[in-house]
Structures are given as C-alpha cells and as structure tokens.
Design a binder for these strands. Structure first.
Length: 804
DNA sequence: AGCACGCCGACT
DNA sequence: GTCGGCGTGCTC
C-alpha cells in the first residue's frame, strides 16, 4: 500500500524545483498515481498550492521533518502519463527551466490552478469590522488597500478574522442538460390519462417521452426545445412526478463543428517521387525506427499529400500521428484538408481556441478518441499514445521555438518523443533550416528531395525591381511603376494579387520633423510604435501605452509626424494610386479578434477583394487559385539587422511568398522590390535555388563560426541597475570560461541591443561550442547558485533564435 | 512565489 | 525601549 507521494509544487523557483514528500490520506491510497494533480499545504501558515504527483512509495521517505498530508486530489486519472512525466524532467534540464513550468506548458492552461487569498470574519461583527467588511463575511486580499491589510493582520492575531487560501481548479467539463425517460411507453400513456386535459404541455411531454421511451438514452434539452414547444418548466414537473430524470451529459466544445461534415477526400495518386517518400517513411514506421526524414520540396511539390498518406499508414498499423504546423499556417484550409481525410479522428490544437475548447480537444486526445492531432508548437505535448509518426511542416519556422520559459524548440521535443515511441519524424520544408539541412548532409537525417511539382506547373517568374533607380523616377517609395502596372492589369482581368509588406526589423514611429525627437518608452530603450486602431503609442516590449502627441514634447513643434511604413499607410497610398481596386488588409491589427484571420481569408477566397495586403502572415499556407501576382514591397528590411540569420530569413520569406502565385492552372508572377538586388539571398530566391543558397550560406557560416557549425547558448543577466547586471555577467563569464575547452568561443559580454526593457538592464554573452562535456553541468550550477537574489535575474537560452 | 525570521534605524 | 524596513533562507 503506497502511503507517501512525491509532489512537484506550483512554486516556480529554483529552490523549489524538486519533489517534496507528502502523506497520502488513507482514502486515496489505492487511487493516487503519478501524473495526478493535487492540492498540498506548502510553507508556513495556511498556504496551499497545486502540485503534480511524480512518484509514490510505501516506505517513509528519508526526511527528518514532519510530513504534511495531501489536502485534495484534483484528478481521477493521471493527466500526465509516464512518458510525459519523463519528458517534463528531461525538458527542464535541457532548457534550464523549472519542472513545474514544463508540466504546465504540456497541459491546457485551464488545468493550472488559480489562487486566491481571502480574509474571513470568524466572530460576530463589531462596529470596527463592519467598517471594513460592511455586510460581507469574506474579502479578497487582491481588492484591499495596504492600510486595510495591516489592520486585518492585527485582527488575525486576535483571532477576530482568519486568512484562508483557496486553490481553484479551472478545468471544467462542459455539460448539456438532457432528459432521460424512466418509464415505458405504456406507463406514459397510462400517466397521460390521469393528467388534466388542460395541462397541454404535460401531455406534450408525455407524448414525447412515450415516443422516446424505448431508447432509454438521454435526449439533450436543446434538441427537445428545437423540435417541440416544450421548455424546462414542464420537464421539471416531469422530474417531480418521477417520469424522467434530468442528467448532465458531458460534451465537447467543437471549434470545427462546421468542418466535421466536410466531405471525405480520397488519397490522391502520388507521383513517383511522392510514392518513394511515403514508402520510406512508412517502412521506418513499420520497423519502429526513430529515423528523421527531411522532406525538402518546393511549394506545390505535394508535401501535404505525403504527410496524409504516411499518417494513414500509421493509423492502419494501429498507431497514432502528430502533425505540427506553424501557428500561422494552421489555417481553416489546412484543417479542412486533414479533417477531410480523417474526419472525426482528428483533434486540432491552436491558440485561436478558447481555453475551454482547447481543454476539450485535449480530453478527446487523452481518452484516445482522436488518432490524429494537428496543432501548433505546444501540440507536440499532446497526450497521444502509441505514436507512429510525428510530422513538422515548415520545420524552419521560428514559431516552433518558444521565447519564454521553458524556451524549448518543438523539434527537440519531437525527436525525444520519437525516440520514446520508436517512430519516424518527418521534417518538411521548401526552405529547411540550415541546421536540419546540414544534419541531412551528414546523414543524421535522411534527405528526401522532391524536385518536381505535383501539378507539373512551372514555378512562378520572379522579377526583382531595384528601388534605388525607382526612387529617382517617382516620388512614391512603396510602389514601383512595374508593380503598379501589373496590379492594374490584374484588377482589369479580375485576377487577384497578394502584396506583402515585410515588417521585420521595422516599425512605425513618431518623429518631430523640426528637432528629430522620437517618442521613447519610459521603461525600455526603444521607440514607441504607432497604433492607428487604438489611436495610441505602444511599446512592443513592455506594453506601455500613451496618447499620440499633438505637439513635439521636446520643441513644442506641431510638425511631429508618423514615420516608417505600416500596412495602413500602404493601404491608403494604394487607394489613391488604384482607386478601382478592392483591398483587404491583413495584419496584427485586423486579425486580433478571434476568427478574424479566417474571415479575411474567406472573403478573399470569395473574390470580395482584388488585393490582399498584409505582413509576413500572408506568406504562409494560403492557397488561392486565382492569385496570379505576388508583390513584395520591401524584400530587404531584415537584411540590415545585425543577425546572422538575416539572409536565411529573407530567403525563406521570399521563397515562401513566391509560392503563393499561380497555384492552379494560371501562371503566376512575382515582383520583388528591393534596395539590394545583388544580395545573394534575393538573387537565389529569384531562381528558387534553395540548394544554391544552402551552399553559399553554409560557407559563410563556416567562415564566421555560426550555427550549424557551432551550437549556441545565450546567457543573460538583468538588474534594475545597469552596472549590477554588467558586474554579474562578467562574473558568470569567469565562472564559465574555465569549464570550457579551447574549441569553445565566448562572445561578449555585451549589453543587449535594447539594453533596457521594463526598467531592467540586460547584459548577455553567447557561448559557441561543438562538444563541451562540462557545459550542461556548469550552467545548471549557475542557475542554482543565482536564485533571483539581490535583484539579479539570470536566464539561459539554448539555441536562441537571435542574439539581438 | 510567499512568508517568517532577524538585524538595524526612527518613532510613540 | 518598540515598530517596521527589507535582506536571507526555507518550504516535505
């Protein structure tokens, strides 16, 4: 009989990043299993926190203090299975994060408890207490002023009030009220005879019950109200008379209800290349090899069909499949495609779902009701069992890396799970990350190259326009004459165009034309960005918001204007230049509302607009047959950034956006505007030459010593005082340096590009290395020694996406 | 993260 | 002398 449990508590700090022992109450000893959530007392006082059981034992643990007892068990079944528990442990070490943070990232957010601290009146109310409590007996600390809290704490010592801690489990199952007939049809007919004739509704209810008595199954109330005149009132009367029972039916919130009935599609005929790819992947699955395939294929080479057929094979073999898609690529089109093939066996997880919807999808997976999971980054933690295949589409996408704790890359998690389940991983992309492509070169991954397009269409023609010349010709800085002319042509022929404004490394700010003053964030060293939708200036780092200035705060001039190019400005400009064109704008401002993204795409698909204007988000995953022109307004804004991945990002973006043109029978054309037409990223993207780009960029990375030739780790120290942060990072350097071999390279320490964010100063250093057996241990030790003391914060980011 | 304990300065 | 500031350390 197990009597003791090891619990990871919901206190995200380094000192508490380990299991604590608790006594299991006798009633739970038979049921409690690792992976269940519990509520436990923790620390002095009455504080209670949520925790995860990670182990149970019969023998008393080796602990000299007095053990506390588990206060409540929140689950009947473990929410983390043994695999996910092991994964959480590994992930915490790998990303230098807390185990509790890893566990919470794996689960729908509603399963993280919310806490409240309240003060309750214990004795009779007095004049003094009434002044604070009024007619209430309980107050929430969060609503109280500091002076009031002081008074209450005094009363607590006199036992006039008590402080209580509440742990709320927010995971609520959605239920439907349903009517369950209890009697037979004959009984109902008999009962009807005794009911007065004027009780019309009761007769109707009895007739309804008689008709459904045979099935005995509960009928959801909403179905009853939809088909009859009955309401809840007569049903309650029926309950009182013992005719029926009202039950709560568990149900799921189905975000894709309208797609459930999507017509089922049949597997398409594969090209020879595709067939070989499917065969190789399937073979690895059958042999239970955790092999990684890198499928490199241009847009239209039919990667999705390969995924679908490989998934089909996994399901046929009685296993499940996990498919990751970048958040932005998780369009209704993509979901429809997977649902079309696998119907209700598919569960979808992405950030557009409400927390309740997400929880329900998660439960469906956990219960084994879905064999295929499609989702964005965190879906890699889906509680699927017997995984037979993991797919990562657009594997180069930066959204697969989480930029907050735990800073994990979904690819690393995918590889871990594949090893656990002995199943293959498929990484797919038209422009693989250099890391993955290099691994394929070395034979660590198996490279599958798709050289032809499934529809045998030629790739679109790409024209590069040198904006340096264009600027001399016209005053317009956003539109070249060629692009305008081609846009006009498309509007005339009722064909559609997509325009992309590259916003990376770029923002719209307010500057005074007289004195050059730029409005800055008071907390961070960065300009505020203009937001026309809210008519305010916002800081993208800390969220600070203020009004748009009418006069320059520095010189009082009225000539304070908006600088930089935003989609709104381009839209206005385009309206003037092409008044006949109908324009749809898609950017963070117009897609913030839930479902807005899909709605805009639907409108464009229905030809409600001629031109779709947007930021990077339009580059991915859209598939509109009537788009014959794609324009990139500013291809090179990212090239100027001091980031070693700038060229790679630019190449990927241009290739991806080019793929949006001419996806059906119509031939597509791409116009790329740039100030750097000679740059190799632009030149090679123009010729759709990924392999050429790969070779060129690898040479450069080799020369400069960057990934994939080196692994990288970013160490950051921050403090409210600039010199404290600097002092700390130098101290860390002296600590790390002796543990490294001569092959490792230390960059920095340096202040971060945006040195101050949210009133804190950031200093960082980058470790570049190939093989450092002691590094993990030293960094783990550093994290443990520097436990948020003296106001210093340390963070470690393995393989950061950028150093700036 | 909270919370208590403990050691220094400014008050009834 | 005590109240309370926050630096330090612990939570099964």
């Amino acid at each position: 009989m197990v009597q003791f449990a090891q619990v990871i508590v919901d206190v995200p700090s380094l000192q508490t990043n380990r299991p604590y022992d608790y006594v299991i109450p006798a009633v739970w000893q038979a049921q409690l299993q690792p992976g269940m959530r519990v509520v436990v007392p923790f620390g002095k006082g009455q504080r209670q926190v949520q925790g995860f059981v990670v182990g149970t034992t019969a023998a008393p643990p080796d602990y000299n203090g007095e053990l506390k007892t588990i206060a409540a068990v929140l689950d009947l079944q473990p929410v983390l299975n043994p695999e996910l528990l092991a994964l959480a442990k590994w992930l915490a070490q790998w990303t230098f994060a807390f185990q509790i943070s890893c566990m919470q990232t794996m689960l729908p957010s509603v399963m993280k408890a919310s806490y409240s601290k309240k003060v309750r009146l214990t004795g009779a109310a007095t004049v003094a207490t009434t002044a604070i409590f009024h007619d209430q007996t309980e107050l929430d600390f969060a609503d109280l002023a500091p002076e009031v809290i002081k008074q209450l704490l005094k009363w607590q010592q006199q036992h006039l009030v008590e402080v209580v801690y509440e742990v709320h489990d927010r995971a609520k199952v959605k239920t439907l009220k349903a009517v369950q007939p209890l009697l037979t049809a004959a009984d109902y007919t008999a009962a009807a005879a005794k009911v007065p004739a004027n009780a019309k509704r009761q007769h109707e209810l009895l007739a309804f019950l008689a008709a459904h008595a045979a099935a005995k199954a509960p009928i959801p109330m909403h179905e009853i109200t939809a088909t009859t005149e009955l309401t809840l009132a007569p049903v309650h009367a029926g309950v009182a008379k013992g005719w029926l029972r009202l039950v709560d039916l568990e149900t799921y919130r189905d975000p894709y209800a309208e797609l459930a009935s999507a017509p089922r599609t049949q597997p398409l005929t594969l090209t020879a290349e595709q067939a070989t790819a499917v065969q190789q992947i399937t073979a690895a699955g059958e042999q239970k090899r955790d092999q990684v395939f890198l499928v490199e294929g241009v847009t239209g080479s039919g990667k999705t069909e390969i995924y679908l057929q490989a998934i089909q094979a996994a399901i046929t073999a009685g296993r499940t499949a996990l498919m990751l898609v970048p958040e932005i690529g998780l369009t209704p089109q993509m979901v429809a495609r997977v649902r079309g093939r696998f119907g209700e066996h598919v569960a979808v997880l992405h950030s557009g779902l409400s927390t309740g919807e997400r929880y329900d999808e998660w439960r469906r997976i956990e219960r084994g009701e879905a064999q295929v999971v499609v989702g964005a980054r965190s879906a890699i933690f889906a509680p699927l069992q017997h995984i037979g295949l993991i797919i990562m589409d657009e594997e180069h996408e930066s959204s697969y890396k989480q930029d907050e704790m735990p800073r994990y890359h979904a690819r690393d998690v995918a590889l871990w799970r594949a090893k656990y389940h002995h199943c293959p991983v498929v990484l797919g992309s038209a422009t693989p990350s250099l890391e993955s492509r290099a691994r394929a070169q070395k034979g660590v991954y198996q490279l599958i190259r798709l050289k032809e397009r499934a529809n045998h269409q030629p790739l679109p023609e790409v024209t590069v326009v040198d904006m340096k010349n264009e600027l001399k010709k016209t005053k317009e800085d956003n539109f070249s004459s060629l692009l305008l002319q081609e846009l006009r042509k498309r509007v005339l022929h009722q064909e559609q165009s997509v325009l992309m404004l590259n916003r990376r490394g770029f923002s719209s700010f307010v500057m005074c034309r007289d004195c050059g003053f730029v409005l800055q964030c008071p907390n961070c060293d960065i300009s505020l960005t203009l937001h026309m939708d809210t008519h305010s200036m916002k800081c993208h780092y800390c969220g600070h918001e203020e009004a748009i200035p009418q006069v320059c705060p520095n010189c009082q001039s009225r000539k304070i204007r908006y600088y930089g190019t935003g989609t709104q400005k381009v839209e206005t400009e385009l309206h003037t230049l092409l008044p006949e064109a109908r324009i749809l704008r898609m950017d963070v401002d117009t897609t913030r509302r839930k479902g807005a993204h899909g709605k805009l795409l639907r409108q464009f698909g229905n030809h409600e607009a001629d031109i779709l204007l947007g930021t990077q988000m339009i580059a991915k995953g859209l598939d509109f047959p009537d788009v014959t022109l794609v324009g990139v307004l500013n291809a090179d804004t990212a090239l100027g950034l001091p980031d070693f991945r700038a060229s790679e990002r630019t190449f990927q973006l241009l290739t991806q956006v080019s793929g949006r043109a001419g996806r059906a029978e119509k031939k597509g054309e791409v116009i790329v505007q740039t100030y750097n037409p000679e740059h190799y990223a632009i030149r090679l993207a123009r010729h759709h030459d990924y392999e050429g780009f790969y070779k060129r960029e690898m040479t450069l990375r080799h020369q400069t010593g960057y990934p994939p030739y080196y692994y990288t780790i970013l160490v950051t120290a921050s403090h409210e005082e600039e010199n404290e942060a600097a002092k700390k990072i130098f101290q860390l350097m002296t600590q790390i340096k002796p543990a490294l071999s001569k092959q490792a390279i230390l960059l920095g320490p340096t202040p971060r590009a945006i040195a101050r964010v949210n009133k804190r100063y950031y200093y960082q250093m980058v470790i570049k290395y190939k093989r450092e057996p002691h590094l993990q241990q030293v960094l783990t030790q550093i994290m443990q020694e520097n436990q948020a003391r003296h106001g210093i914060q340390i963070s470690i980011d393995r393989e950061p996406l950028s150093f700036i």
